[in-house]
Simulated scan of single mutants.
Amino acid sequence: MIKKILLAISVLMTGFIIALYSDSFLRFKVRDIYLLSTFNKIEFIGKDFFFFNNVSYYIATAVTFLILYLANSTSTIVLFLKNSFIAVFIFIITLLALSAIDANLKLIQCTACDDGIKELKRNDINYSLLILSALFASIIPSLILLIKNRNKSGWVIKNKRNSD
């Protein structure tokens, strides 16, 4: 039992560390998606002044790793890798779609743009909302698997009614 708890804590800490190191990378990628999806009709202005993302991003990333681990803790390595790949794939697709939609909506809102090019400050993008939404979408299959495994193993206490 202690081994499982320590392993879960290490998975949680790994998720937190990955969140710390992937933060600026994801911000750059979201800006790249904005440019590509609008065919460079968005221009980023100003300095990129950024220290840390929202705390909820770090917590959500760590919890995402923990849920992925818990849902697949009794699975084989091949199934664990398959489910991890699916989660990463859903994350990427969701982040691409949400960023492209948001970029095009910002472009549509521009009524006084010079030559159809919208100028955005780098911090005008809600990176936390985009990334957190993609994280949530990526963990849905693991949550479903976790709930199914929980119901099969009898963790759920069934409601018994008295026939009095």
Rank of each mutant, 00 (worst) to 15 (best):
Leu107Val: 03
Val63Ile: 10
Thr74Pro: 02
Leu7Cys: 08
Ile59Met: 08
Leu26Asp: 10
Val63Asn: 07
Phe50Cys: 08
Ile90Tyr: 07
Ile5Leu: 13
Asn151Tyr: 10
Cys113Asp: 09
Phe49Ile: 15
Asn104Arg: 07
Leu6Pro: 05
Leu120Tyr: 03
Phe50Met: 05
Ala103His: 04
Phe44Met: 03
Thr74Tyr: 06
Ala19Met: 01
Ile117Ala: 12
Val30Pro: 10
Tyr57Glu: 06
Asn126Gln: 07
Thr76Cys: 02
Asp23Ala: 07
Asn149Ala: 10
Tyr57Arg: 03
Ser84Asn: 04
Lys47Ala: 12
Ile45Tyr: 05
Leu107Thr: 02
Ile2Glu: 15
Pro141Thr: 04
Leu20Val: 05
Leu12His: 02
Ile77Val: 12
Ser99Met: 03
Ile9Thr: 12
Thr14Cys: 13
Tyr127Arg: 09
Ile92Asp: 10
Phe25Tyr: 11
Arg150Gln: 09
Asp124Leu: 00
Asn53Tyr: 03
Ile2His: 10
Leu35Asp: 14
Met13Gly: 11
Gln109Val: 00
Ala137Val: 06
Tyr34Asp: 09
Ile101Ala: 12
Arg122Glu: 13
Val55Asn: 13
Thr94Met: 10
Ile144Met: 11
Tyr69Val: 00
Tyr21Met: 14
Ser128Pro: 03
Pro141Ala: 06
Phe89Tyr: 06
Phe52Asp: 15
Leu7Met: 08
Leu66Trp: 01
Arg161Gln: 13
Ile147Val: 12
Asn151Pro: 00
Leu66Lys: 00
Val30Met: 05
Ala103Phe: 01
Ala71Leu: 02
Phe28Lys: 14
Phe28Leu: 14
Val11Gln: 05
Ile67Ser: 07
Lys148Leu: 13
Leu12Asn: 00
Lys158Pro: 03
Lys3Glu: 15
Ser75Cys: 07
Asp124Ser: 12
Phe50Arg: 01
Val55His: 08
Ala71Gly: 05
Ile131Lys: 08
Ile101Glu: 12
Leu81Trp: 04
Lys3Arg: 13
Tyr21Ile: 12
Phe16Ser: 06
Ser99Phe: 00
Ala134His: 01
Phe85Asn: 09
Phe39Pro: 03
Leu66Arg: 01
Val55Tyr: 09
Leu98Lys: 08
Ile59Glu: 10
Phe44Tyr: 05
Ala19Glu: 01
Val63Cys: 10
Leu146Asn: 06
Ala137Pro: 06
Leu35Val: 06
Phe85Lys: 00
Ile92Ser: 13
Glu119Val: 01
Leu79Val: 08
Leu79Trp: 00
Ser10Ala: 11
Lys106Thr: 03
Lys158Met: 00
Ala87Asp: 03
Ile18Asp: 11
Leu36Arg: 01
Lys106Gln: 11
Asp102Glu: 12
Ser56Leu: 08
Leu135Glu: 11
Tyr21Cys: 14
Ala87Tyr: 02
Val55Pro: 15
Leu79Gln: 09
Asn159Ser: 11
Leu20Gly: 15
Tyr69Cys: 02
Ala100Val: 03
Thr64Val: 07
Asp23Ser: 09
Ile77Asn: 13
Gln109Asp: 15
Leu36Val: 06
Ala103Cys: 02
Val88Gly: 14
Ile9Val: 13
Ile92Val: 14
Ile17Trp: 07
Asn83His: 04
Leu143Arg: 03
Trp155Pro: 00
Leu120Val: 03
Ile131Trp: 06
Ile108Ser: 14
Arg150Ser: 15
Val63Ser: 11
Lys3Val: 11
Ser138Thr: 04
Asn72Phe: 04
Ile125His: 08
Ile101Val: 12
Ile9Asp: 09
Asp164Tyr: 09
Cys110Ala: 06
Ile157Ser: 15
Thr111His: 12
Ile108Lys: 10
Ile67Lys: 01
